[in-house]
């Protein structure tokens, strides 16, 4: 009887450990060391859980109608689809398309132009932007402190009810850092758990020849700011990285986005101008709009035949991580849903 109980406990512990492991897949040897420490999950009520509540709660916005998830939908790898330019409070339209959120622990800077240098500071940008959440950290803290739900949530996490900006921003950062995506077919191939099809193999070869310099595997970004020769949209005239550095050579440069989960993160480019991958490849096959010939990040067009494009796209689709996108640990938290229903 005693042995049976012990066995049940051991099985239980194993299942819990397995479930926790599932929640944030462990990166393996082919993945570089992240800049940020990945969150660990020792308890049910950790900072990640608190950050998840905050991430999905409209309480962050001035009118209680916009959350982080409004522009970063889990089912779109936390990107914003359907709109070229993301929109926020009072249907205000911004100037860029919200990027997908995953593998942020491997990013040094955040936003399309790297305006935010640290993940804990990132949430302040949309929170204060009059076109995104139109609020501020002081107002948010007042609302959180007045909320029984959040007083309890902070107590569950920190064992006291102190609600301050440090804890709030760290919790949001913890949830964002937990968004790890390395369970695509590409990853399975890398770990000898799958094989590419003939077409995917051909596409992978083309990728390494033409795309890997900027969309460097295994993160599929080199983390740099580059000008990929997009025609300047005069209605926005978004100068990208230049707005942060004020260096002439940074004009019209944007952070190279990861190609992981790209089926879920359309539309593409910083201003969402392309809806399909074919449009993207069409852009790269054109050698128009090279702004600084001789010094351009992309000097030559990438000419691909119709079949080669199909091969390349076939490979790119192996970068989709369905487990990440549909991971219940990342979706709208039941605890928040139950609270909002009761309220």
């Amino acid at each position: 009887m005693y042995n049976k109980s012990l066995l049940s406990i051991l099985i239980g512990l194993f299942l819990v450990a397995f479930a926790l492991k599932k929640r944030t897949p462990e990166p393996t040897s082919y993945i570089p060391t992240p800049f940020y420490r990945l969150p660990v999950f020792p308890t049910k009520n950790d900072t990640v859980a608190l950050g998840r509540l905050l991430f999905y709660d409209n309480i962050l916005s001035a009118n209680n109608q916009v959350s982080c998830a409004s522009c970063h939908n889990s089912y779109n790898a936390f990107a914003h689809t359907d709109h070229q330019l993301s929109h926020g409070i009072f249907d205000s339209v911004g100037t860029r398309n919200a990027p997908g959120l995953f593998n942020l622990a491997w990013q040094k800077e955040f936003m399309w132009d790297g305006a935010t240098h640290h993940i804990e500071a990132q949430a302040l940008a949309p929170l204060h932007d009059p076109k995104e959440m139109g609020s501020n950290i002081k107002a948010l803290l007042s609302k959180l402190r007045a909320s029984d739900f959040y007083r309890k949530a902070f107590y569950d996490t920190y064992k006291d009810t102190i609600i301050n900006s440090n804890r709030t921003l760290k919790a949001l950062a913890a949830f964002e850092l937990s968004l790890v995506s390395f369970e695509s077919k590409y990853d399975a191939v890398k770990t000898d758990n799958a094989e590419f099809s003939t077409q995917e193999k051909a596409g992978y070869k083309l990728f390494k020849q033409n795309c890997n310099k900027c969309h460097t595997e295994p993160l599929f970004t080199n983390g740099k700011y580059m000008d990929n020769n997009l025609p300047i949209d005069s209605s926005l005239d978004d100068k990208g990285r230049f707005l942060v550095t004020k260096q002439k050579e940074d004009r019209y440069k944007f952070k190279v986005p990861s190609l992981r989960n790209l089926s879920y993160t359309y539309p593409y480019m910083h201003d969402g101008r392309f809806t399909t991958l074919n449009q993207v490849l069409q852009h790269y096959s054109s050698n128009q709009n090279i702004k600084n010939k001789g010094k351009a990040d992309l000097e030559k067009a990438i000419h691909l035949s119709f079949n080669e494009r199909a091969d390349l796209i076939s490979f790119l689709l192996t970068l989709n991580d369905k487990n990440f996108v549909f991971n219940p640990a990342y979706s709208f938290p039941k605890k928040l849903k139950d609270y909002l229903i009761q309220e």
Binding site: A115, H118, A121, I137, N166
Partner: peptide
């Protein structure tokens, strides 16, 4: 990252954009 006390962003001395 984000600091506490005088470095808390609620002090109005932290750029958010």
């Amino acid at each position: 990252g984000i600091g506490e006390g005088p470095l808390d962003p609620i002090q109005g001395m932290y750029w958010t954009w």
